[in-house]
Amino acid sequence: MFTKPIHTKLLYLVILAAALLLPWYVPDAYIFQIVTMSVIFAISTSGMNLILGYTGQVTLAHGAFFGIGAYGVAIMTKAGISFWLALPASALISAFIGLLIGLPTLRTRGAYFAIVTLCFGVIVWIVSGNWIELTGGHNGIFGIPRPSAIPVPFFGEITFFTQTGMYYLSLAFLLIVLFALHRLVYSVFGLTFMAVRNNEPLADSVGINTFTTKLVSFVAGNFIAGIAGGLYAAIIGAVSPTAAGYMMTFNFLIFVILGGMATLSGPVVGAFAIPIIMEFMQFLEDFRMLIFGALLILVIIYFPMGLVGGLRRLNEKVVAWRQRKTTESGHASS
């Protein structure tokens, strides 16, 4: 369970190399933009996956925490604070608000939890549009400064004015988040998350503090959303209530579910595949959302485990078929 076969590791290494070398072969600024945004969405979606996929709590406030991170970085950097300080600070604010909201609301379950978090998301969205002194109202905050350059001894400095700089910045955070999540979900503590998801009363009866477990997962997931939001603010350069809106949440939700819940690669696959499909569908013009909506329904009916889940199932079938074949041939030879 904890080790992966060699060829999977090899696959991941190839993907990692491809990601690191991307600026050298990316065809144009357009593709580069989509990829960079997908990296940011992948970070946020991974956070949602921790809460939704591993701990089984349907949170519909993820866009709100993403937005809190984005507004945090926007407000602080506009006030002259360095991005490198503002980013962790905003993520901590996201996590802290997550704690405050999680304490009362995690007492509810299932659909009730989903709706309570949705309500919180809508409140953040409305407040971000109306608290003009803090958030700039519906115009939002614009002209957000780029992250300041990092001096590197003997090399010069790394700047963040180009797409390349922004891409590596996001990629670095995605890798850190994935690494941290990998360590977390394959630890004993990570197993308690899944125990809560699979059967909460049972987990309770074997001595797991289910409430604390859910709270830790919720807070950690929102911390990650805050990081992603902060990166978004720095890269887009302007934040408006859309960044905290419920459509953002729905997008993340679609990425998680269609990518594949409770797998580390699923949300990343979802965050890349779906925006790219959406861009590809631009030629449909007025019919784009019509067909996307129908597609969403079909995919969820025929691939309930998401893309990664579907691939795994296929892989298992192939393995089983091979094993049957070897045993059969073994029988034949004996």
């Binding site: 939700l253 679609i254 579910i257 019509l290 996307f292 909506g293 969820i300 309930p304």
Partner: peptide, 30 residues
């Protein structure tokens, strides 16, 4: 839309609902 999803987790039906609302809204638009 919903009957094929009977045996799946509720969140999947929720995704189908989001798909339906996108479909209906752009249907009216078209």
């Amino acid at each position: 839309v919903y009957r094929p999803l009977n045996d799946q987790p509720h969140i999947n039906a929720f995704i189908a609902a989001v798909g339906s609302l996108l479909f209906l809204e752009s249907f009216a638009l078209v």
